[in-house]
Design a protein around this nucleic acid. Sequence first.
DNA 1: CTAGCATGTAAGTAATTACTTGCATGGGAG
DNA 2: CTCCCATGCAAGTAATTACTTACATGCTAG
Lengths: 193, 193
Amino acid sequence: MSTKSTAERIIDAALQLISAKGYTAATTKAIADLAGVNEVTIFRHFGNKRGILKAVIEKFSYLPLLQEEINKNVTWDLETDLLNFSVKHFNFLMSIKDFVMIGFKEGMQFPEINEEIANTPLHIKNELIHYLQEMHERGKVREIDFEAAALSLIAINVGHFISRARLGTIVSDIPTEILLKTSISIFSRGLTP
Amino acid sequence: MSTKSTAERIIDAALQLISAKGYTAATTKAIADLAGVNEVTIFRHFGNKRGILKAVIEKFSYLPLLQEEINKNVTWDLETDLLNFSVKHFNFLMSIKDFVMIGFKEGMQFPEINEEIANTPLHIKNELIHYLQEMHERGKVREIDFEAAALSLIAINVGHFISRARLGTIVSDIPTEILLKTSISIFSRGLTP
DNA sequence: CTAGCATGTAAGTAATTACTTGCATGGGAG
DNA sequence: CTCCCATGCAAGTAATTACTTACATGCTAG
């Protein structure tokens, strides 16, 4: 048996099913079955179906922010730092893949999810802008629109993530490591004065 | 009244609703209402609900491939060509936004959609690789993993598209034009020998 | 004008879904 | 041991959903 609490097992099951099939198609019965729990237990814990989703969102709102992790290990060597960031960002997205997929599927219907999802890029963007400005002052990054540059870097990672998470190796089977390395090699060279 | 045929109006309504709420939540009744058509008419046209989705997918399988458009207007100036591609790619994605969203939502459940969606990046990737190789031979692009570079360029555009299509201006309100211009400015400089 | 074809209207059906209620049970805390 | 709390089980309900059938109506081509 699992060591997880009943509520946790329900949340995990809901996360899986909603991310795979969407909120409407993920029936309470299916969630209960996957969690190995009686259907009534769900309602006793969360009141109604929306309650499960609310709990799922809450679970991800306390995520240790990627932001803090990023600031560590700054070497002030552009390519090293950007690659470090890129790998962390990519792995972070992969680790919350199911939640991100729910965001794509249900963000329009449940705005709370969108806000939660938008939170991360917003913070990251600001960190990156700050970093790029500092690097510019150190003469290691050329004059450029820092916000647009930060957004572009985020876009690369998100793009790679989407491609891998949604299409697997249909489009390409290049190892992710090489993909990120090449991206950053090009990007950091493009930023250098 | 609309000049569109009944079938077309149903397909358009389904496209809107499924992209907004997902396949399961997009009721045949709701689709019929939005199309301004009686619910039975849907079944007379498409047999069953799956039939509507099939028709939606078919509608997008005959898209004039972006691929051909890209090859036009090649100037063999790196930044000019890449920006031209980037803008076209981004606008293409925006023009089929609803279909892309359906792909995100239902791709796992209806693999036909995924195949259709993966088609575009696959073709584009090959065109880009070809272009980069040629540019390399002309001494205008440095030695690099061309496939990874092509995928990265696609990733930037997809990333920007996702951000704009899903989060609007929550993350940033920089005009798309400037965003793409900056991306390409960095990227093309990063590719230059 | 008329025949036929596309569509609307009305009514219904079987299955599913979110959710409720009442009762049984078992394991852990006092 | 006993009490209680979480959970299981059984049964049910109102609403919704995909889909069907039968019939009426109106526009268009011949």
